[in-house]
Design a protein around this nucleic acid. Structure first.
Lengths: 401, 401
DNA sequence: TTTATTTAATTTGACGTTCGAATTTAAAAT
DNA sequence: ATTTTAAATTCGAACGTCAAATTAAATAAA
């Protein structure tokens, strides 16, 4: 049981290489505190297994130094391809990445249904994956692992979807069943955590051990990374930041309660307020109405401005509460919707500083990270990369014996 | 650097013995996954150093079994004595414990000042410690380590009080200076974390890896234990749960902001509301006024009931927010003031269930833990126990070489 | 061109640690 | 007394880490 020390070394070095990018063995040794001898031994293993590769030393060093030149090591992107799948309400997006996290191909498809029976879900996933890989001039066989994120309650350890709005049955062993169908490892998680994982591995949280990621899509979500690990409460339904209460007996939320943050800042919340006295399309797709609302505010419409203003103040309160509770070093506002820019306005971020309990240490950094539409699927791909890396290390551990 | 494996084993076994109480080597092996051989080796070391002791096997086993009887191991209380100090606004409390966490002596003393210059603080602490140890028929020399908790911003790693309402100067290296004066190791921390530590080591969080501790004294505090470790944000001022906002532009808090939870549930908040139309003493010590308020409510006074009722609803919201964010397994409401019982009433705890986002997994357990007046000082003592244990293990690591 | 110098990376050998298997110990049962 | 049973210990093999010595690969100097 204590014989995991070697694997600890492997993990440490591999993740350091992933984080710090190409770097020579000697710096690996310095940064991790592992001796040069051991670094040599372990990196040799990783090289042989194909997880990392040496970068041929550039012929003319820019800074001309004597001595044997350093040889940079980096993650070998070509080691594996992985697919990340985000199953949303009426759409599915799939991203194919290499082992380094480089996006190779993107895919999006509308779905005609919201809820699937287990067997239908599997069939749909297989079909969409076929499409997505074909689009990238690949076949399913070229993919070494799959990551999947969906809304609901997910037991990550068991790989079971306890409940999801996308699946008719409860306690569906999605991970194992899909894995068997694909013949490859599959990793599943609640979608709230996807973006946090993406930020941690290939985004703005790459070198930060503790940070929060707040996402605004239809609802308001949050991912928590503490001590370099994703924190997933005890029930696997993600941090319900959107349903923290910011006002006693406040606005009605679609969850049935009152005063939820989401009931003030989500698009449906804004539009229902605006609906009083304005002409809206009332479409299911709120994009057009939201654009109209923003435009009206910009044009000086008092109602529109009032609506947006309150939303911004509520959002600031919600974020300030997070700061007061976690005292994090960094909060990443990760979003895809340009319409919600007003929430990320400088005034909002500044007002947070006033709301937070005043101490004379620097307040946490709050940054906005705009991703493309496939942010979520990329997070799922990162899960696959992480899980696959871990599996490969385990395999190495067994191999040596 | 990777050569810490032995100390890891020592730490694992020592903490397991502390948690699970007296247990034989073979169970230690099973529970920790460390082989019997290694358990023998390590426990021999710990025995020799005096950190643990064997419990003489009882002459007649109640469950009569054949074979060599198990020999229980337990923490050796007599190994060390430690003192825990809680420096409060106008009082100081000191608890002396043995290495097992058993309280040997309690001490409380009023202070004539709120704020001390560094030199005065040291003199005061030394004097009070002399008193406290004398009360226990000991001398300072009988104490092997000291734990100290105080309000403010504390850099635990450096042992520096960045700022505290109790000290005139900033950035006072309290830990090292006091340690030098006492000739023994000293450990300091923000007081918000004290109770969490106490719950973790000798309280209701003993066998729980993730839990929250909420305390209500004058303010509302919180301690966070995640993955068996106390989580202390980045600035060392503790989780400011009391200043999370539960109402936009709500009641005025003494921190200058509006809508803080504390501004609804702290004693001063209740009394100022009650002050409208009622006769109160207005004393600095709010105990009498609070008792009067509670009594009035019990007697059916409408105003009093309204005041308490809103406080309870706000408190429920605050707790529900914690549940939504952390999804913990356990929340401990740790308090000393009987006057605040109304906050812990069953109706409040039940209403939380309604406020929390509904999933069909069991909601977190919320328990009330009533400690004596010296709860905080006991937490400080636990710090000393923990730190001293760690120091001793380090010493063992060096000793072997 | 050859040799010296410098720095990165590897190899070597010693030491520490863990663990399975064999052994010893301490009790009850025969 | 002897056997049986189960806990604890001892022993030796295998593995891992690391400091020191060595090798490798470059530039600078002769």
């Amino acid at each position: 049981m204590l014989g995991e020390q070697r694997n600890l070394g492997r993990r440490t070095l591999l993740s350091q290489i992933r984080k710090v990018g190409p770097l020579p063995r000697i710096e690996l040794s310095e940064q991790t505190g592992i001796s040069r001898a051991t670094v040599t031994t372990i990196t040799a293993e990783l090289l042989e297994r194909g997880l990392i590769e040496e970068i041929p030393v550039e012929p003319k060093g820019k800074d001309l130094k004597r001595g044997r030149p350093k040889v940079d090591l980096k993650i070998c992107g070509a080691a594996f391809n992985v697919a990340g799948i985000k199953l949303a309400n009426r759409s599915i997006s799939i991203v194919i990445c290499d082992f380094e996290g480089e996006t190779l191909s993107e895919y999006w498809s509308a779905l005609d249904r919201t809820t699937y029976a287990p067997e239908d879900l599997l069939a749909m996933l297989m079909a969409e994956l076929e499409q997505a890989t074909a689009r990238a001039d690949m076949s399913l066989n070229d993919i070494s692992a799959f990551g999947l994120g969906l809304a609901g309650m997910v037991d990550v350890v068991e790989g079971v979807v306890r409940w999801s709005p996308s699946i008719t049955e409860r306690n569906f062993k999605l991970r194992d069943v899909l894995s068997q169908r694909l013949g490859k490892p599959v990793f599943i998680d609640n979608d709230a955590n996807l973006v946090a994982k993406a930020e941690q591995y290939i985004g703005m949280g790459k070198n930060v051990s503790d940070f929060l990621v707040v996402t605004i899509e239809n609802g308001v979500g949050m991912g928590i990374v503490l001590n370099n690990e994703l924190y997933r409460g005890t029930r696997g339904c993600g941090a319900e930041f959107g349903h923290t209460k910011v006002h006693l007996d406040g606005a009605l939320c679609r969850c049935g309660q009152r005063g939820c943050l989401e009931a003030y800042v989500a698009d449906y919340a804004l539009l229902r307020e605006m609906a009083v006295g304005t002409q809206l399309t009332g479409n299911r797709d709120t994009t057009a109405d939201m654009a109209a609302l923003i435009e009206a505010a910009r044009a000086g419409d008092k109602t529109a401005n009032s609506v947006l203003d309150r939303a911004a103040r509520m959002f600031a309160i919600g974020l300030a509460n997070l700061v007061n509770i976690f005292d994090p070093k960094l909060i990443i506002l990760s979003g895809e919707r340009m319409q919600l820019d007003f929430l990320f306005a400088d005034e909002v971020l500044e007002s947070i500083r006033d709301i937070v309990v005043q101490v004379d240490a620097a307040p946490p950094e709050i940054v906005v990270h705009k991703w493309g539409d496939l942010m979520w699927a990329t997070g799922a791909a990162v899960y696959a990369i992480e899980g696959l890396g871990e599996l490969t290390l385990q395999e190495l551990a067994g191999h040596v014996a």
